[in-house]
Amino acid sequence: MTVDGFRSTIDDVLPRWVIPPLKVLLALFFVGLVVLQAMSLPGSLAHMVEEDPSTAPIRWPLFAVLLTGLVCVQVVVVCTWRLLDLVRDDRIFDDRAFPWVDGIIAAVCLAWLLLVGLLVWAGATADDPGVPVVLTGMVLASGVLGLLMVVMRALLRQATALRTEMAQVI
């Protein structure tokens, strides 16, 4: 072994087969979200108005909120995809990784705000507790996810500093 060869690379610790199936799942998830945005969402809102014409005024505001929420999830998927590329190429411990992590945090924050807004609105207007309960769960889950991402970002920052420091050791 050469003296220079001590730096442990991603190939030493992560099985090679993990990333490709993960990216396939992310791609399928992304396609599912597009189908949801393009077909299910407009369809179910049109159905809602057909069933109860009094909901017509909220049709487009609700569409905009739900569409934005789904875009947030897509942003998270894209950022995760890019970060996986960086992991695969052993470039994750680099300043260039941070915009993608920030993208995830921003998207989760926006989604959380949208969910809180929906919860407040649904709590005030819904006559059965089903929707508010589901929304409460989603608010809690996205809050946990967002704060966890902040912790992960701090860990990435620490690891990047350590890697930079170690790279200077001869």
């Binding site: 072994m1 050469t2 003296v3 220079d4 200077q168 050791v169 001869i170």
Partner: peptide, 24 residues
């Protein structure tokens, strides 16, 4: 002979090295 890259040898010689492993 040492198992270093010429670039790292240059860093050592130029006095720009910040840390050296005992194994080195």
């Amino acid at each position: 002979l040492v198992g270093l890259t010429p670039a790292n040898v240059a860093v050592l010689k130029n006095g720009r090295a910040k840390a050296v492993r005992f194994s080195t």
